[in-house]
Design a protein around this nucleic acid. Sequence first.
DNA 1: GTTGACCTTAAACTTAACGTTAAGGTTATA
DNA 2: TATAACCTTAACGTTAAGTTTAAGGTCAAC
Lengths: 138, 138
Amino acid sequence: MNIGELAKRTGLTPSRIRFYERIGLLTQVERLPNGYRSYPPEAVTALGLIATAQAAGFSLDELRTLLPSDLAEWDHAPLVEALHQKVQDIENIQEKLAESKAQLLEVLGEIEAKPEDMDCATNARRVLARFGLMRTKE
Amino acid sequence: MNIGELAKRTGLTPSRIRFYERIGLLTQVERLPNGYRSYPPEAVTALGLIATAQAAGFSLDELRTLLPSDLAEWDHAPLVEALHQKVQDIENIQEKLAESKAQLLEVLGEIEAKPEDMDCATNARRVLARFGLMRTKE
DNA sequence: GTTGACCTTAAACTTAACGTTAAGGTTATA
DNA sequence: TATAACCTTAACGTTAAGTTTAAGGTCAAC
């Protein structure tokens, strides 16, 4: 599979895939005699995993240090530890997200609890004041 | 309260607070006769909320357009919609995170299930191949 | 009355995560 | 055989969200 095909299958752009290779996230891609990059089917899964991890809050830099390039030198203990750490990280992010979500829902609840007889501006003031968002007057 | 004090209380840097003002996130701060910025106590809460919203995934640009400088012109519907969208976004991320976590735990499980008689490198290969993480050989 | 901690501005610099462009080689197809 | 649709590299551009620097003015203390 060449890069255009891989791009299509992963939804990433070719430039982005080349970029990942440039920063060492993807190692030595096979080359055809003409210089074209040739990817195995698993590349799709690998890129999918990278995308997911990124969405989960991992930086490309983190990912690079996490994915060992040489499997033969792969050292059991550090990776297991890294994985455990990542699970912990994910749990921390999950907690933060839950808080953020709760806060957003609280704001939404406040806004929707607008008394029938109150106009929007007043309600805005009430809600924002409730959350310390009121700006200092001009 | 001047900027150093506000910085201390919010945990932000003065440069960051000035930056927020520059991009229009904080409007006309009061100035003392000597030109120093002077903040009311609510500024602490406001900055805290900005930080929270940022952590919730709002960009500074989004925040600026969402937080109108003139409360009288505050438009109810778009803000409510934006908030709902953010909740949805958070839920999507949460789902992906849960998947990522499950996947990591699965990897960990696989690693720990290494047959007694298999060496580490082979086990690594076995596990990573199992998850499509195998890199193309050199 | 000067030292040090604080404040001011404008502008340049940084980092992450890409994207774009230029200049060219390759491959499929009509 | 030509032409579109691929691919290559290298280098420069972009956006977000700041930080740093340079060149000063102000304030509290000793």
